[in-house]
Design a protein around this nucleic acid. Structure first.
Lengths: 336, 336
DNA sequence: CAGTTGGATGATAAGGCAACCATCCGGGGA
DNA sequence: TCCCCGGATGGTTGCCTTATCATCCAACTG
């Protein structure tokens, strides 16, 4: 009674190791997962057998049995920008050391597809989930709750995180930059913002705080996301005719700011005398170009690391803070 | 006889859907995986039940049964550079559309750890594997062969790929740049190379081709990998005292080149008159900074996409080419 | 009208591992 | 000397799905 399927993969499995080492499969499993619960001599004998047979454990099978996949799903808009590649890098590195792997999904800023994307990730039964942004439809929120796994949202802030949050308020950033400019005596303002929710939130915060200072903001059309140097250059050309004698410009990233600085130089617009420019993100390029670019620094890598640590803590049974606001600060450099 | 474990996850499973829809579990499975083999009315009824119950299929269990995880493992040194984030982005996007997910691992340029990293990935039973670079120890090669899954190597070329390869010869790149400079009448050469195998290979190709032209190359210490703008600035300062009246400099990336350009300007070294600079990678920054930077263009996104397509082709039973050399070309801009 | 064919569906049995509980054994205490 | 305790190890079963037949039925062939 067994014309079964064509047969096994032919690969060495835990029972093969167990038989060869003269122990039960369960003991081999312990050697791999909880070696401290196995006597030294048994452990060494089993380990030697594992090495000899070239046994590669099957975590698909192990995951089905233990109901822990040891995988974490991460959804970010893109990794083409340091804005997200830094957190993802840190997130991945941190989890690696704990034996977890990251399944990466890129949304390409398509928020409408978030539910489908999350659902697709959940079919993999990840032990945890990283999301970018904190705005989700009620359906998504329910989906996440029903999944019964820890979830971290990064790069944003909300009063009611789905589960855990590591981020900051983008409107506050915009407002802080407005204050910074105002303190320098600026009265004319402009903005080059990317069309993603967070870029728009920074712009909104900037605009309303400028209004509080009694000014108004010249705006270019929203840039594509992720926006790059070329967008900054084009944006400045669009803005140029409307610039006053002395204008303060907030850009949605240091790349955009660099583009604006470059284009301003080309157009003979003096920076910072006639055009003060502040970027966002504290990227390499803003630090190391000439002139160095004033920016808002947010530690993306720290966000990724903390997100990973919080997930790990939760999976270990702990109760990390559900809402961590990371600091941002304006770094004045030569463009303001 | 069953004091079994504490119980199930409580989640809806395929048998629940089947019972609710009045069909066998196998039919539900078909609705999800091969809907064309199910009659329209049954399909719709089952699908409605799935939606109503909020069933999220368990691909861990499915993968164990079908022996296909629908996951692809990708190992790259880092995603902090467009050099690798572009291919990974394209790779991920391409596979997403085919229902595959990417498990990401970052080697941080630690080649010594490659075997352990690959072994760890293989425990996940990926259906395919992306590797960066084509130099592997015999042990690694055996490990890969024993895994019986398609493997693509990118960003490098070798006569004997482990399985499939999508890349190019870095020494040829260096040589081509040497020829390019020589054709412009250069007789003094310099190099700023990152310490990774491919950066060093480009430098080596550059050096030997320069030698063929009867010249020699001034070299700075190998830069850390991934190297950035600051490395280019520091590197140029290191190189400056040794520069001739007219020197041609090859940098290991456009970031390094940008740093060199920036520092040269600071030091009053005329570019390109006294120092001609060629970068590598055709990054955004080289295209859009002033002056635009001469570079070697390689389509990283295409490499990632082709790698994904080849893996998909192989998993579909096809036989894609085992060695695809992607073109590179020098794009002369204002720094040479 | 019997026999055949093929599409739709179902029943059964893995797939490889770990949770849970049972068992075994040696040493310590009374 | 006997019992208990605790660490080490083993046996059994389930994790949830899909591969592989087997079955069923309707339409079709001649």
């Amino acid at each position: 009674m067994s014309t079964r399927r064509t047969g096994s993969t032919g690969a060495v499995k835990i029972t093969d190791v167990a038989a060869a080492a003269g122990v039960a499969p369960m003991t081999v499993s312990r050697v791999l997962n909880t070696p401290e619960r196995v006597s030294v001599e048994t452990r060494e004998r089993v380990q030697a057998t594992i090495d000899r047979l070239g046994y590669v454990p099957n975590l698909i099978a192990g995951g089905l049995s233990s109901r822990r996949s040891r995988m974490i799903a991460a959804i970010v808009p893109t990794i083409a920008s340091p804005m997200f590649s830094d957190p993802v890098q840190a997130f991945t590195d941190t989890l690696d050391h704990a034996g977890y792997r990251v399944i990466l999904a890129l949304s390409n800023y398509n928020d409408a597809g978030e539910e489908a994307l999350i659902r697709a990730m959940l079919t993999r039964r990840p032990d945890g989930l990283l999301l970018t942004g904190a705005q989700h439809t009620p359906r998504v929120q329910r989906l996440l709750r029903d999944a019964h796994i820890p979830v971290v949202e990064i790069w944003d802030a909300t009063e009611q995180p789905v589960d855990m949050l590591v981020g900051f308020d983008h409107a506050e950033v915009g407002a802080a930059v407005a204050d910074f400019f105002a303190a320098q005596g600026h009265t004319h303002f402009a903005s080059l913002a990317a069309g993603d929710p967070r870029g728009l939130a920074r712009r909104a915060g900037f605009v309303s705080q400028v209004a509080r200072h009694g000014g108004t903001v010249i705006e270019a059309a929203a840039l594509r996301a992720p926006s790059g140097i070329a967008d900054g250059r084009h944006g400045l050309r669009e803005l140029a005719p409307a610039l006053g004698p002395r204008t303060a410009l907030l850009c949605s990233s240091d790349l955009v700011a660099f583009g604006a600085v470059t284009e301003a130089r080309q157009m003979g617009i003096a920076v910072p005398e006639r055009l003060a420019i502040c970027g966002f993100g504290d990227f390499d390029i803003g630090r190391n170009s000439e002139p160095p670019i004033t920016t808002v620094s947010v530690d993306g890598a720290a966000m990724g690391r903390i997100a990973a640590e919080n997930l790990l803590a939760r999976m270990a049974g702990g109760s990390p803070p559900s809402r961590i606001l990371v600091p941002f600060r304006i770094i004045p450099r030569a463009t303001t």
